[in-house]
Design a protein around this nucleic acid. Sequence first.
DNA 1: TTGAAAGCGCTACCAA
DNA 2: TTGGTAGCGCTTTCAA
Lengths: 349, 349
Amino acid sequence: MPYVMVQIPNTPAPTSPSAPRSVPTSADVARLAGVSRATVSYVLNDTGAVRISEPTRRRVHRAAEELGYVPHAAARSLRAGHSRMVLMPAPPVPAGPLHSQFVHDFQGALSRLDYTVVQYGNCGLHGDEAARAWAELRPVAVLVPGPGLGPRGVAVLKRSGARAVVTFGTEPVDGAHALLTDHAGVGRGAARHLYARGRRRIGVVVPEEPGLETFSAPRLDGAREAVHGTGATVTALPLAYTEESAAALAARWRDLGLDGVFAYNDEYAMLLMSALQDEGVRVPEDAAVIGADDLMLARLLRPRLSTVRITLPSGRGLAELVDRAVRNPGATPESHELFDATVVQRDST
Amino acid sequence: MPYVMVQIPNTPAPTSPSAPRSVPTSADVARLAGVSRATVSYVLNDTGAVRISEPTRRRVHRAAEELGYVPHAAARSLRAGHSRMVLMPAPPVPAGPLHSQFVHDFQGALSRLDYTVVQYGNCGLHGDEAARAWAELRPVAVLVPGPGLGPRGVAVLKRSGARAVVTFGTEPVDGAHALLTDHAGVGRGAARHLYARGRRRIGVVVPEEPGLETFSAPRLDGAREAVHGTGATVTALPLAYTEESAAALAARWRDLGLDGVFAYNDEYAMLLMSALQDEGVRVPEDAAVIGADDLMLARLLRPRLSTVRITLPSGRGLAELVDRAVRNPGATPESHELFDATVVQRDST
DNA sequence: TTGAAAGCGCTACCAA
DNA sequence: TTGGTAGCGCTTTCAA
């Protein structure tokens, strides 16, 4: 079907009544109020050093209101030479409840310190590429979850003005503050507990979902380390987060000859424990099961699930760390343990 | 222990070798490469219209590399007059698994369409205040979860250049595209199901956690509506997400004289069902329980939990909606049902 | 093939 | 008390 392409002007003539006028600037406000742009800036920012008469203030405010004027953050921070944006790249996997809660708190705390917190969804970029993309936004601080950042990335960020770079991860990155997430410690705690309960052939669930290796690998390593030299064994058990996968694993459970399992976290633990029970494997007699994260829901299953409780520090404390780092960018990067991992024994071990 | 505070200059003299030099600009690159800023821009952006000789290109690239030059996004979009930022204000409550997954998909899909997706954590701001804060960033599109935005807010955003404003919520907002989340439909489906199973005195759990009213109120209303005129009753049951609260509710269950309950979602349902069982209330004989969201974990409890499954559309489809809206900002706002709610009967009803 | 220069929207210095 | 104006870093038109 033949058609005619009509050129639609994307900035309609300002005479058109219903059309969206172009975005009002402070110059427009100044014009309408009959003052200079400088005055507009003074009034709207309530600059202390300069006194503007009350009638003028009113005129400016009225004009701004009438035009629906909103200042342009990019222009402002360009002029100012800095911003108060804290950038937090979104993790490569959808956030779990712990992470969601943590990010929420942290955002709140930083907001109260007058920072603007922004989660940046950068799909597919890796390593230094990603760092460059973040650096383009000229954040005053960057909080990077996971291992996506090397020393070169840190350097790129700092060179482009980031006054604080903070990483979450199992080990510190050169030049950045580090919040150490001791996943190995979680695995170690779980395996030690199983060992103490008399288990010698220990399975460790490793989720098959991509993106979780970051956490699962150190947890597995930690478990290995915990029983090293004791004669107990640790076996990696790949498991997808589906009932089918759990049923399949449970079906070959007896062949595996294991007597205890650290199931990565409470969700996988619930899934596996349930499948084991369906298979007639008794928990904890035939197989002791321990999870991690201490989800409330995990207390509802019977037997009640033992777990490694992970307590994260308050968002406020971390926000203060960031604030300190921003105020004193020269300081030597600090490393902090972020986790506090405690075994909570219930009925499944 | 006494200590001496040493004033560290935060912009060290550029002669200092190891100190962080000030952020390199395209002018620095130009200087180092011995060309003009224009040439730098041409080379780094690979401008098609202009041919730059190969040796010059190399010099520019080398210089940029050496300085660790990263372009300044704010300056660029200021000059360009527009950006490709899609702003998504973070919801006031920590995200649940459904929301996390959805946001993740959606971010990925928009990234592939070459947008920059940014979740903005704006603590405490409300209504038009919040809209103004978002507008300062001059996003090309804004996706607002929940009811935080009125027609005035939409107008503010559009006036400041947003070419698409999309709301998630139970009802459309004037001037914005709407993705309708039919929470009432969820409640309706659940209550209808309970009614069909012979229940006449129906409880509806209303979470006490602040910020959830947005979802719980329409779910309750939907349940009321479903049984309106049938002689069946609907009773709101406040419940905090703690074992204590659930135990307290279960303790007075017999006094309440209810025979069925829609428990807001699967998590509250699991909590309540478990408490009821501890109290000796038989499920489903004495009390039929239905949740919502179809969490996998809810299938693990016994009796297996009936639920209202909520399927969200793919992130890709929504990303395309946004893209279409951005390309054609004049179009009449569309409204779409976002939810597809289906009752899944298992053993608890 | 390259350079000079204007200007995006804003703030802050200096002058009136 | 107010206005003129420079300049933040960038792209792009026009001229050489």
